[in-house]
């Protein structure tokens, strides 16, 4: 028994050490920086919670942080409703095993394998006002499309759409896996009782895929509040145009590392913001997870 314990410890040590050295230690470093003011690039004085107060309650950070947080919330709600809602319907359609359903399954999942950077560049081209595929297609039916990524009113929506296009397949696959675990007898019994597709989806399938909903909710939540790659590639560090696509990830990056020609590096405030984002996501995810797990049992 003791021998086995030693073996396990020996096998775990390299991974645990790597994690400790390259993940935990830098994180603790960032945590410590959050309590220091910076003179240029060197930590200067211990300032207690001042950086946190600055980030949350003082200009110029406050306005940017809360505008960005609001955008993160919009992103989360829209992705839950549209991306995951559609994924739920697609998963149900795939479950029915209509002709060519395997081909469709692959098609739906295909964008997921692309990196966010590729997807971002691809759609930036598609949405281009002069050479883009989208406006060219709209022109065929006589519609003069707007500069999707250049209008403050359409930019964030366009980014959410692209994110949906990218990750729809992932959510659909998780739902499908959940649906496939529902015993055939349950579905058949409901059908014999005269349940339509709508009723099945709402009353039978929905409660029984509760574990899948939990996973998707948590993943979408973390993804929405850590959103960075897509807005960075498609809208740049400042959340162009005019901050319409600014999200917490971009604010953090700009604050901590500066941007090429405009912002200055400020590790103190950047670290404070990173710590707050980490706490917010961790606490909310933990609470939501607890609630959703209970819901799974209740349903």
């Amino acid at each position: 028994m003791r021998r086995q314990g030693l073996w396990i410890a020996a096998l775990l040590t390299p991974a645990a050490l790597t994690m400790a050295v390259f993940v935990v230690w830098p994180m603790l470093g960032a945590f410590r920086y959050a309590f220091f003011s910076f003179n240029g690039l060197l930590p200067a004085d211990f300032v207690g919670l001042s950086n946190f107060v600055d980030v949350l309650a003082r200009a110029p950070f406050k306005a940017a942080v809360f505008a960005a947080l609001w955008h993160n919330i919009i992103v989360f709600v829209c992705l839950m409703l549209f991306q995951n809602g559609l994924a739920y319907l697609i998963a149900y359609a795939l479950l029915k095993q209509w002709p060519l359903h395997r081909v469709h399954q692959v098609i739906v999942f295909l964008p997921v394998v692309l990196s966010a950077v590729i997807v971002g560049f691809l759609w930036k081209l598609f949405l281009h006002p002069l050479f883009g595929l989208v406006n060219a297609a709209l022109a065929l039916v006589g519609i003069h499309g707007p500069p999707w990524l250049g209008n403050e009113s359409t930019a964030l929506g366009s980014l959410i759409f692209v994110n949906g296009w990218h990750f729809l397949g992932m959510a659909a696959l998780i739902f499908l896996a959940g649906m496939q675990r529902i015993p055939q007898e349950v579905m058949e019994a409901a059908r014999i009782d005269g349940a339509s597709d709508g009723v099945l989806l709402r009353r039978i399938v929905w409660p029984l895929v509760a574990p899948a909903v939990t996973i998707i909710f948590i993943l979408t939540f973390i993804g929405s509040f850590n959103w960075f790659e897509l807005p960075y590639v498609m809208a740049g560090l400042t959340g162009s145009p005019g901050g319409a696509t600014d999200v917490l990830g971009l604010v953090f990056y700009r604050t901590a590392f500066g941007s090429v020609s405009s912002g200055l590096q400020d590790f103190g405030h950047g670290s404070a913001l990173a710590v707050l984002m980490f706490l917010f996501i961790a606490v909310f995810s933990a609470v939501a997870l607890r609630f959703l797990r209970r819901r799974e049992i209740a349903l």
Partner: peptide
């Protein structure tokens, strides 16, 4: 250019 709010630096150079 038409749709200039969506025209970035690289596009401007190419135009």
């Amino acid at each position: 250019p038409d749709g200039f709010t969506g025209v970035d630096y690289a596009t401007g150079q190419q135009l």
